[in-house]
Simulated scan of single mutants.
Amino acid sequence: MSRVELIRAILSRLDENVAVDWSKTAEGTPTRYAIIDDLLPEEITRRIHGCFPPQAEGFRVLDSFREKKRQAFDLSNRPELLADIVYALQSKPVVERIGELTGIEGLDGDPTLYAGGVSMMLPGDFLNPHIDNSHEATRRKYRRINSLFYVTPDWVESNGGNLELWDDKVSEPVTIVSTFNRLVLMETNDRSWHSVSPVVAGPPRCCVSNYYFSEASPNGEEYYHVTSFTGRPEQPLRRLWCSVDNAARLFARKALKLRRRADAGYVQGRAQAEA
């Protein structure tokens, strides 16, 4: 299936979900979301999954007290289908349709994959509760939506590795299972605490991640913050350390004008998106 055909298939499935209730939030949380199951024909999604390398060979490993996962931004040396699904979800027709579904005006993609791409999580991997970086690389646009497409066949809740949406106090999560062939659209703002529960079993959890932006602030006010982590409810010391770490990284970005390390995918992204 070509990139154009993927775009058509995604648009068709989105059209079947015109009644998506973006006004609802996860119970007890401030985060709006939508779930679209069976995004693509099952055979195609299985082929996409087959493009991920066994045990995440060649993926960049992020391993700290904040998170442990494996990700790739540079898709130039990956199977063509893997790049095609990433950039199909970044295509203008798909982003515009998602903007219509969610009612967010002026929604744009990010072909540089500043924070998007593909990720894999193995047993022991996790992503602690956090609020995403408020902007894209140029800091001109606010991050508005996370698009998460899960492609691991037969994934079950007991494997862990599931999306969690938290209340303002990060005390109680709502779990969204990383079900095969499921697309989750999740709002991001300065209150949208979310995490990925530790993976405890199963094959690598594979996800295609994209992020959408707009010039308008989610809350109508100007703000900026780095990706800000905290501990889980049972991790009080980690919460304390995360608050110090968040402040230090924000100071480095704002006062010292430091930016997160550029990845090769940032350079490759535009060329691949236009291919």
Rank of each mutant, 00 (worst) to 15 (best):
residue 1 M to T: 10
residue 11 L to D: 13
residue 12 S to Q: 13
residue 16 E to M: 09
residue 24 K to R: 15
residue 25 T to C: 11
residue 25 T to Q: 10
residue 27 E to L: 09
residue 28 G to K: 07
residue 36 I to W: 01
residue 41 P to R: 07
residue 41 P to H: 07
residue 44 I to D: 05
residue 45 T to C: 14
residue 48 I to L: 07
residue 48 I to Q: 00
residue 55 Q to T: 07
residue 56 A to H: 03
residue 56 A to R: 03
residue 58 G to W: 05
residue 64 S to I: 14
residue 66 R to I: 01
residue 66 R to L: 06
residue 67 E to P: 00
residue 67 E to G: 01
residue 67 E to I: 10
residue 71 Q to R: 10
residue 86 V to I: 13
residue 89 L to H: 02
residue 107 L to I: 04
residue 108 D to V: 07
residue 110 D to M: 11
residue 111 P to M: 04
residue 113 L to F: 10
residue 115 A to E: 06
residue 118 V to L: 04
residue 122 L to T: 06
residue 130 H to G: 04
residue 131 I to R: 01
residue 146 N to A: 14
residue 147 S to N: 03
residue 149 F to D: 02
residue 149 F to A: 07
residue 154 D to A: 15
residue 156 V to H: 08
residue 158 S to R: 07
residue 162 N to A: 08
residue 163 L to W: 00
residue 166 W to Q: 06
residue 166 W to V: 05
residue 175 T to S: 14
residue 179 T to N: 14
residue 182 R to H: 07
residue 189 N to E: 02
residue 192 S to M: 03
residue 202 G to Q: 14
residue 206 C to S: 15
residue 208 V to P: 09
residue 210 N to S: 13
residue 219 N to Y: 11
residue 220 G to H: 08
residue 221 E to P: 01
residue 222 E to R: 02
residue 224 Y to T: 08
residue 225 H to P: 10
residue 227 T to E: 07
residue 228 S to H: 06
residue 232 R to E: 15
residue 242 C to K: 04
residue 246 N to S: 08
residue 248 A to L: 13
residue 254 K to L: 10
residue 254 K to D: 13
residue 255 A to D: 07
residue 259 R to W: 04
residue 261 R to G: 09
residue 274 E to R: 12
residue 275 A to P: 05
